[in-house]
Each structure stands twice: as structure tokens, then as C-alpha cells.
């Protein structure tokens, strides 16, 4: 079980990093740049992890990225990797409610670390991040809870196995659309992204994560990205029977969010939340009412 879990983490790390590399390349082409090699993020994360020194605000600051990475890895481990029971690890105990709440643990860890740095702009960023998260979650929950209701189970394996005849994305297209809009935001893509530290924190006490902390945050971000895509593949696309199938399906979902992100500009947070609790939520409610 431990070996399977480790393999899942490595797979998620490499895939997430490569996807992010591809995303950077695609974005660069749209900007008429060449962009970095697709493996650049892997080099970067290792380089950062082995930096000689990183600034810290004590043990709370130290714990933030660790809690975030723990949450990302736990989220991944409790989502089934394949639909045939291979490499299941602890995912046999995976329940959708548990996974959804584990997804919320990471931001809280990050928020603690940012908070202790005492930078008011960092706290503003956290406030915006948490507000945006609440907005993203309404359509996401509506779609996913509808799936649980229609499948009669919150066991992810059961939801996955109930799609042998037809994947949920075809059976419930409106729910899929609403959840894809949320996924775009969850993956940090425009128009629902929140500005990161380099732009936001222009004054006040130094608060940025550096060195091994940044390395860990980059790594966990890759794992978390893959975990979210995996969840969508399992819930709406019947899961995958092989690694190739999983990579293909998750990549297609990923690339959809990438193109949405490239095409749209960024909403302000209040605009994003207002949009999310209206349009995608209405789409999801329509999707539910259509099948009740």
C-alpha cells in the first residue's frame, strides 16, 4: 500500500510538472515567446529544494507549506487512480465528502504561514483566495452533490463504476460544464485566478516563501493539480484503465482550462464570485432539475 501510494505521488508530481511546463509553453506562444523547456519546472523545484538558505518567520511559517503539501498528497491518495482497482492504495477508503474537505485543508495551512509573516497584503491575498474558493465551490458542490445523489453513493469508486455505459460528462453535460468552470478557477486559471505574491506584496514585511519552502509549494501544487484533474476524470469520464488513458483524459481536461485561461482576462475577486454564484450555479441547478 505504501509503495502504491508513493508511486501515485511520483506520477502526480511528474505529470503535474509536465502539464505546467506545457501550459507555460502554450501561454508563451500566445505571447509570441518561445517559452521554457517543458521540464523546466522540475529543475526549478529541485534547485529550490536544495537552496542553501531560506527566510522563515519561525515554526508556524515552516509548517504552512508542509500542511499544504500534506493536504495535496492526502487528497491525491484518497482518489482512485484507475477504474480497475489497480494501484488503489488507500483510495479504497476514498469518499467524495472526505476528498472535498481535504482539498480545503491546504489553503488553511498556506494562510497560516502567510498570516504569521505579518504582511497586510499577504492577508488581503488570503482573504481574496478564501472568498474566491467559496465562490468556486458553489457550482462545484452543486455538480458533485448531484452526481452523488444520482449515483446513490459518495464512494468515488462506485460513482466511477456506474459510468460503464455512458460517462457522466455525456449523461449530465450541464453538471460537467458547471464543474469545468469551477475547475478552471481551482487550477488557478483566468478569469478566476487570484494574483500571486510577486505582484501583490510590494511593501510591508518580507513575506514571500523562498528556497526549500517555495520548492515544496511548487511540488505540491503540481501534485494538487493532478489530483483535481484525476477527480474530474473519475467523476465525469469513468476513470481510466491505464496510465496512458489517464494521461490523455486528464490532459484534455487540463488543456480546456488552459485555453479558457488564455482567452479571458482576470475578473476582480468580487466579480468572479458574483459570476460563479450566478451563472455556473444556475447551469448546475438546471442540470439537476433536468434529471430529477
Amino acid at each position: 500500500m505504501i509503495l502504491q501510494s508513493l508511486l501515485a505521488v511520483v506520477t502526480a508530481y511528474l505529470t503535474g510538472m509536465l502539464y505546467y511546463g506545457i501550459y507555460r509553453n502554450i501561454t508563451a506562444r500566445f505571447h509570441k515567446r518561445i517559452g521554457p523547456p517543458v521540464t523546466q519546472n522540475i529543475y526549478d523545484s529541485f534547485k529550490l529544494l536544495f537552496k542553501k538558505e531560506s527566510t522563515s518567520y519561525g515554526w508556524i511559517f515552516y509548517m504552512g507549506p508542509i500542511v499544504m503539501a500534506t493536504a495535496s498528497i492526502l487528497t491525491l491518495l484518497f482518489i482512485p487512480l484507475f477504474n480497475d482497482g489497480e494501484m488503489e492504495g488507500v483510495s479504497r477508503y476514498g469518499d467524495l465528502f472526505v476528498v472535498l474537505y481535504l482539498m480545503a485543508m491546504g489553503p488553511l495551512g498556506n494562510a497560516l504561514a502567510v498570516g504569521i509573516s505579518a504582511n497586510p497584503f499577504g492577508a488581503m491575498g488570503i482573504g481574496r483566495g478564501l472568498t474566491r474558493m467559496a465562490g468556486l465551490e458553489l457550482p462545484f458542490y452543486l455538480s458533485l452533490m448531484a452526481l452523488v445523489y444520482f449515483s446513490g453513493s459518495s464512494d468515488i469508486t462506485q460513482i466511477m463504476s456506474a459510468q460503464e455505459d455512458m460517462p457522466n460528462m455525456m449523461r449530465y453535460p450541464l453538471l460537467f460544464t458547471a464543474s469545468m468552470i469551477s475547475l478552471t478557477g481551482f487550477l488557478g486559471k483566468s478569469p478566476f485566478d487570484v494574483v500571486g505574491a510577486p505582484v501583490e506584496v510590494y511593501s510591508g514585511p518580507a513575506s514571500e516563501f523562498g528556497g526549500k519552502f517555495l520548492g515544496l509549494l511548487m511540488s505540491q501544487s503540481a501534485i494538487f493539480t493532478f489530483a483535481k484533474l484525476l477527480l474530474m476524470v473519475d467523476l465525469f469520464w469513468g476513470g481510466a484503465g491505464s496510465l496512458a488513458e489517464l494521461l490523455l483524459k486528464s490532459f484534455i481536461l487540463f488543456i480546456i482550462t488552459v485555453f479558457i485561461g488564455i482567452v479571458y482576462g482576470r475578473f476582480k475577486v468580487h466579480q468572479a464570485v458574483d459570476f460563479l454564484i450566478k451563472i455556473p450555479s444556475a447551469i448546475a441547478v438546471a442540470g439537476i432539475l433536468l434529471h430529477l
Binding site: 529544494l49 536544495f50 542553501k52 527566510t55 505579518a118 526549500k212 519552502f213 515544496l216
Partner: peptide, 20 residues
């Protein structure tokens, strides 16, 4: 994280402010 070679340097001075 603890076993990684990099050391973390604690910022003790709360007035370490970038004024911009």
C-alpha cells in the same frame, strides 16, 4: 524538509519592512 541541506533563517526583526 528538516533533512534537506538548506537552513531556514528566522527573521526576528518585525520592522524588516520594504517601504516601496
Amino acid at each position: 524538509m528538516v533533512s534537506l541541506p538548506g537552513k531556514s533563517r528566522k527573521i526576528n526583526d518585525p520592522s524588516n519592512i520594504a517601504y516601496c
